[in-house]
Structures are given as C-alpha cells and as structure tokens.
Design a binder for these strands. Structure first.
Length: 429
RNA sequence: GGAGAGGUGGCAGAGUGGUCGAAUGUACCUGACUCGAAAUCAGGCGUACGUGCGAGCGUACCGAGGGUUCGAAUCCCUCCCUCUCCGCCA
C-alpha cells in the first residue's frame, strides 16, 4: 500500500510513476474522493465532539441533581445527523481503502523502465553451460525412468500435479535440506515451520488480496455449513514469514530479522493454461525454500543485494549455470519496488528459466500489515520487507536432472548433495 | 465433541453505565541526591487517524463485529482466540 500522504501531496508524480508499471491512476476521481473524505471526516468528528461534550454535561448535571431535559433535547437532535455523517464517511473511506489496496508499489529509481519481460536487464552470467556430446533430453525424459511420475499425479489430482518416487524423491528432499542448511548455517537465517493454511488477513498484508484471489486455492473446514469459514493455501511461505511481524512494533536492535522456511506452495495458475504444460516447471503444488528479511529502511537495498547473493550461493554450490536479471517496471510483481530474478540454465530448452525471485517491497507490505520498529528517536517507523526464493525446489530438481544427465540415462549427483545420498555419486535405474 | 474459566496499556492487574485513555505495581526514559552505583524522590512514558507552519487541538481504539443509551471497558447479541478437565486423534 502506498502512503496516502504521497497521493495527497504529489498525485501527478505518483500517477506517472505508476504508469511506468502499466497502472493508470484516475487522479481526478481520487482527488474528488479525497475531498469528500476530508469534508465528511471533519464533520463527523465535530459532531462527535459536540455529543461527547453534551453527554459529559448531562453526567455532571445529574450528579448535582439539576434538570437535564434541555441538554437532552439538544443532543437528541444530533443523533440522525451524526449517524448520516458516520455512514457517509465510512462509505468513502471504504472506497479509498479498496483503491489503495489495489494499487501496486512504486518502482525504485534504479529499476529499468519497460513494458514486459523483453525489457528486463541482464546483470551478470555465472557459470558456463556444459557442452554435451550426446543429444540432451529434457527433465521429463530423464526423470521418468528414475521415478518422476506425472501419470499418477494426474490420476490423484489432475493436471499439474506429480508424484516423485525413489531417488528422484530423495533428490528433491536433498535439495530442500541443502538449501535450508545453507541459509541457516552459513547465511544466518532462522528456520521456521509455518501453517500452510491461512486466514485472509495475512494475504492482505503481503498483497495477494484483494487483487489476486484467483491465483489462490481456497479451502473449507469440514463440519457444519455455518462453520465453514474460507481459508487459503499459501502460495509461498513469504506470506507466513512476513506476517509474523504484522501489527507489531519491533525494537531497533531486533533488526534485521532473517527468516527462512521450506514449505509447499499452492498456486491455481489460473490464466496460464497452455504455458509450461509439460513437466514440473509449473505445478499447482511445489516446494520452495524462502528467505524473508525485515529491515530498517536505510539498509534494505544492501539487504536485497545480499539476499540475491545468498540465493546465488545455492546455485554456485550446485554448480548450475545461471544469470541474474533486473526486472523492468512493467514485469515486476505487485508489491515489489525492485526485483532481481535468478534464471538457471536448462539445456533441453536451450535457455535460462526463472528459479528465484528476490524483491524489496520497501514499506509496501509493512504499511498494510502495520509492521513497525522504534527508531533511535523513539519514533515508530515502518520496516522494509524483502523476500526471495532460495530456491524453488522443483525447478532446482529440473535443473539438476537436465544439467547433470549422462548419455546412459543416469544422473550424476552434485557433489554438495552426496552426503544426503550416503556418499553415492549417481542416480540410475 | 462435552464441561468450565478467561481475553483491559511492554508485563502484572484494578475497574459493572458518566469525572475512564483507563487506578496501582513493575519495566523503561529524564532529572535530583551520589565519587559512582543501589535505594529514594520528582517528572515523563500506548496506538491509529484527522487538523494546523507549529506548541497544540480533535476523533477513535479496553479480543472482533453488531445492538441498547444523551453517554459503554462496564449492559445485550454474534463471532474469534487462550487456558483447565474429559472424550477422540497423528
């Protein structure tokens, strides 16, 4: 959520910055609504002040045993007026709130301008794609004989679900373990285990709601009809990790908070029909190790660079070639002020594909969830929140299968994962 | 699922219709005393929003949402959460 004071004071500048993200701000309607709000709020508060004063007088008069009928008559006439003012104010306020909640974040000044992913800017490439002396297979063809099973996934749950068996399942587990161990052991993140089902409030906090309800899975508790409150499966543990600090005032010395979790993520992928239908690039359920940081504003951009480095360390340790790109204004997510994507080399697709996304949301989420800290002057300030994948486990599995494949159909186990395989160096039939 | 007890400021804990944004204790901050500290004494110390250049002023908030009333932390209704015991359960 943007600071409404920015919109009040400099709406044209805000509108043009939002335009660079493809969002059109109707400044005229906003100004009109805001003027209405101001008038109604002032009026409502004046009436409330009047009522409070009169009620106090009534109390005092009664204690002294004086006649109160005159004041009573006076205050009685306030009632309807006050109710109307309150209702009017609430209606306008609700419209403003909805609007504000649906407005994307402003891009940081260092973000390249652009309309779509073609305008993203490559920052660096690390590692050299391996030269194969045989025809490379994609992860489906390599994985299927080794235990990657889409048919059973489809039988159980439909398209975009999979079952992992045997060494493939173990490789998947090893990847997640390795990532989590690295972030906790070497990068200083605190491991968390969090709910996979959440209420709507945290989703408003991190920005999935109100705009992106279609991307979520909803769940209902069993039992009586009226008990069936709607809840949501998390689409990322960014939701639970970031919301741990909602509605709180942290001490300055508690910051930064560095949190991590390994969790499944559930996404409905509405609107992505026909995209990445083959294989496990795009699934309704996938695992991810997430990094979240709660930072002081002045440190958040340094923290973003650091966090990207932490995600990169996983790829480096796995010896997977990748590149880092800066998303342009038109390709960034709703809440991000700046985003780096990490793209891993997939030989079968002969291209780099996203495996991590690291964003600084600045105060956008903090303002929604009221996450603050007390600064050196004793003032409450909104924190900055950051999140990044470190990494998407399913896609890491894809990358390992494709980059480490051998001519005989086996897959070499990356050195850092061998301890999770009792020292073995290869997966084969 | 059954029975009961609760949810008030950082924490503890008063407060059953008006002078309550809320006693008191504790923690914390500032000052005094002290060589320094402890103890003691004095003062300060919630959040959000509105308004004003500003000191300030105003409004709202006692788990959440409704209701009664001129007036609600206090009365009524609904919901949520926590705790204890029993049952079931990984």
């Amino acid at each position: 959520m943007l600071d409404i004071n920015l919109l009040r004071s400099d709406i044209d500048a805000i509108a043009s910055r939002l335009a660079s993200r493809g969002y059109t701000l109707d400044t005229c309607t906003f100004n009109q609504l805001e003027a209405e709000r101001k008038a109604l709020q002032t009026r409502m508060q004046d009436l409330q002040a009047k009522r409070n004063a009169s009620s106090k007088q009534i109390g005092e008069a009664k204690r002294k045993g004086e006649d109160v009928s005159a004041i009573m008559a006076e205050v009685a006439s306030l009632g309807d007026e006050l109710k109307a003012a309150e209702q009017g104010f609430e209606a306008v306020q609700a419209r403003l709130d909805d609007w504000l909640l649906s407005m994307p974040n402003l891009a940081h000044e260092s973000v390249p301008l652009g309309g779509n992913e073609n305008d993203n800017v490559e920052v660096r490439r690390v590692g050299t794609p391996r030269q194969f002396d045989f025809t490379v297979k994609d992860h489906v063809d390599i994985g299927t004989p080794l235990g990657l099973d889409f048919d059973t996934g489809a039988k159980l749950s439909g398209a975009r679900f999979s079952v992992l068996k045997g060494d493939i399942a173990r490789l998947h587990r090893a990847l997640a373990q390795f990532m989590l161990n690295t972030h906790t052991g070497e990068h200083g993140y605190i491991e968390h285990y969090t709910p996979y089902i959440v209420n709507d409030t945290p989703l408003f906090g991190t920005g999935q709601l109100p705009k992106f309800a279609d991307d979520m899975f909803k769940v209902l508790k069993g039992g009586d009809e009226e008990d069936r409150v709607e809840q949501y499966l998390i689409s990322t543990s960014e939701i639970t990790l970031t919301n741990t600090v909602s509605n709180s005032i942290l001490k300055a010395e508690e910051l930064p908070l560095k949190l991590t979790a390994h969790s499944p993520c559930f996404r409905s992928e509405a609107g992505s029909y026909g995209r990445d239908t083959r294989g496990m690039i795009r699934q309704h359920q996938f695992d991810k190790v997430e990094m979240v940081r709660i930072e002081k504003p002045e440190h958040s951009y340094a923290a973003l660079e650091e966090m990207v480095g932490h995600a990169e360390n996983i790829l480096k340790a796995l010896e997977l070639p990748y590149r880092v790109i800066t998303l342009c204004t038109g390709d960034m997510g709703f809440g991000a002020a700046k985003t780096y994507d990490l793209e891993v080399w997939l030989p079968a697709q002969n291209t780099y594909r996203e495996i991590s996304s690291c964003s600084n949301c600045e105060a956008f989420q903090a303002r929604r969830m009221l996450a603050r800290f007390k600064d050196e002057n004793g003032k409450n300030q909104l924190v900055h929140t950051l999140n990044g994948s470190g990494l998407a486990v399913g896609r890491a599995l894809v990358a390992v299968l494709e980059n480490y494949q051998n001519a005989d159909g086996s897959v070499t186990i990356p050195t850092v994962l061998r301890p999770y395989f009792g020292g073995r160096d290869k997966i084969s039939r």
